[in-house]
Write a protein that binds this DNA or RNA. Sequence first.
DNA 1: TTTTGGTCCTGGATGC
DNA 2: TGCATCCAGGACCAAA
Length: 293
Amino acid sequence: MPELPEVEVVRRGLGPFLTGTRVGNVRVLHERAVRRNGGDFSGELTGAEILHVSRRGKYLWLVTNNDMAVVIHLGMSGQLRIRTKHDAEAPEVARHPHLRLRFTLTDSREEATFLDFLDQRTFGGLHLSPLVRVQREKIPQSILHIARDPLDPYFSFEQFSQKLRAKRTEVKRALLDQSLISGVGNIYADEALWRSRLHGNFQAHQLSGVMVEELVNNVKEVMHEALEQGGTSFDSLYVNVNGESGYFSRNLNVYGRESEPCDRCGFSIERLKFMNRSSFYCPSCQSIEKVSA
DNA sequence: TTTTGGTCCTGGATGC
DNA sequence: TGCATCCAGGACCAAA
């Protein structure tokens, strides 16, 4: 499932192909892919030039020359794939059951390139949003509520710590709250909590400043490691723009490892139902009894 | 205002 | 073999 490292891998992959191209045509094959878009998605985009590709948390956006952004969220199973004309016309690609949207991109130097949006579970989608200036940068209006992610150079630890410690909720739920800190999903939340020896159900307002600092450092660390290995792939649902999988799943300490021994203490890893999803943790290392320092 | 829990959605895996 | 059910989870929304 694409979380921050996976989305960043996609962003890096898209840049060289998309920068400087123009949108020639947009074919929407599944209306749900553009459900968040109010107006005519294809019409408003045709002819626009793509200037660069940006990201905040799990959101990607293509900045166009008319001060608009094509905001993309991959959801659980979204993929962006770059296709050459030859690839795009192959029957297994053109009639792929999960192909939801296709951009035809033109370039003054070469023949058309295609950008395909595939999404098995249709939780992902694209929409247009005007860019608005906030302090040092321009971001899409529709994602103003999304907090800076921990890899953002302007991420403020003090601000995050203050907000987190004011929350009367569990620390894992707070980590998944994109308006508090963005980019953290179920996998990296579990991994960072394990590294911090924190139980996901520990109350956020009981965390000390030192505990928050350690947690943030572990979130950053696990994300950097995942990024270096091209992200986490369990199956074919996450691939980069060339269709290649990442390798970080081999380095996971708790996520998806129910009943296996903890790498730190050997205790059996348990799975807990939390917020309609699974939480993996070591009941020995990550005791709920932990007392705030 | 903040917190909590339900819903959306698809297809692979599993059980009968 | 065929059918039913479970499961995965990010974002959003309504209820408390």
